[in-house]
Simulated scan of single mutants.
Amino acid sequence: MYLQKYDLHGRVAVVTGAGQGIGLCAAQALGEAGATVVIAEKIPERIASAVQELAQAGITAHGAPLDVTDSAAVEAFAENVVKDHGHIDILVNNAGVAVSDVRAEDTTDAHWRMHMAVNLDGLFYCCRGFGKRMLERGSGAIVNIGSMSGFIVNKPQPQSFYNASKAAVHHLTRSLAAEWGARGVRVNAVAPTYIETPLTRFGMQNGEMYKTWLDMTPMRRVGQPEEIASVVLFLASDAASLLTGSIVLADGGYTCW
């Protein structure tokens, strides 16, 4: 009974930023559970490598370029998924940027806008574009990738722009959940700690910064992309049928202190 709730056969899942890291692992998790996976990735070369890697895991994935900051492109992408696959059941909003260690007073307009454009605007465009199609069918699950930075202020690196964007993602998640809950579409988010991906390499290569990260984490380690993908799979599946508007912290205990 319970394992059947994780069965995603017959469902179509779109994962943004799925060319590497958390997105790629989320695509694999959903594919292993039986979903038809569609990779939406800005960098074409990453699409080819991701499709190949998933194929080696026995998963047939489809992919196409997508810049989530282009609202018209998002709308066209969503329409094409429906044309090619008939429907959209799952959306994982993973595309994001983090160029940290920049003080607030030194943050340029361009730096601020880049983070808001990808982390918040692009996420909303995808929720709107794909969510619209889910609402028409009366069912769907959206999983947004937030961050523990939406709850706390990281140290020692300054990154007010990133923290603000992820806090907004969390509240947008709750707002959409409240608006769409009665219409069959669930919207939840995962809030990870530091995960070993290209985005955190700058800190992991800085001995003092990395030590602070670990000292502030009860589990004394960073996370791995597959650990977040496991949470994504849960939230996207019927095992989480009563969850909407939830922000699931996967932070190694970081926010306990």
Rank of each mutant, 00 (worst) to 15 (best):
H170C: 10
A35Q: 00
V185A: 12
Y210C: 09
R46E: 11
V99R: 12
A76N: 12
F130V: 15
F77Y: 14
G23Y: 01
A239I: 06
G21K: 00
I195F: 02
A229H: 03
D84F: 09
E75S: 11
S71I: 05
A191E: 05
I90L: 04
E136S: 09
L242C: 06
T212A: 09
T173D: 02
M219R: 15
H87M: 12
D121I: 02
R113F: 14
T16G: 05
A48P: 00
R201Q: 13
A164D: 06
T16A: 14
A76D: 11
V232Q: 05
T200N: 11
A40P: 07
E75K: 10
R11G: 06
M209S: 07
L66E: 05
A117K: 01
S246H: 15
G34T: 00
M134C: 12
G21N: 04
A61T: 04
V153C: 06
C256F: 05
Q157L: 10
G245R: 05
V12Q: 04
R137F: 02
E41P: 09
V68N: 01
V38Y: 02
N119C: 00
Y6I: 05
G17A: 08
Y254S: 09
H62I: 06
I43C: 08
I145W: 04
L24N: 08
P65K: 11
G19E: 03
Y194Q: 05
E75N: 13
V222G: 07
G86A: 02
G31N: 04
I145K: 06
A40W: 07
N144G: 00
A64Y: 03
V14L: 12
Y125P: 01
F124C: 14
A178M: 08
T217I: 02
G63Q: 07
F77A: 10
A110P: 10
T107R: 08
F202A: 08
F202I: 14
F124I: 08
S147G: 10
T60H: 12
S165I: 14
V232C: 10
G131R: 06
S100T: 13
A189K: 04
A33M: 04
S230I: 02
P218W: 14
L214A: 10
R174C: 01
S100H: 12
I39D: 11
G129E: 13
E75C: 10
L120M: 11
A177P: 12
M1Y: 05
G140D: 01
S237F: 02
N119I: 09
R137H: 04
A177F: 11
R128L: 08
W213K: 11
L66G: 09
A167W: 10
P218D: 14
D67V: 14
A110W: 01
H171I: 15
A167D: 05
L249H: 11
H171N: 09
C127K: 10
T107G: 08
A50M: 04
A250W: 02
W180Y: 15
L214H: 07
P65V: 03
P158W: 11
Q4M: 03
K132W: 04
A167H: 13
M114D: 14
Q157R: 15
S139D: 13
G17R: 03
E45R: 15
L214Q: 14
A13Q: 08
C127P: 01
A61H: 09
G184K: 11
N163T: 10
R103D: 14
V97G: 00
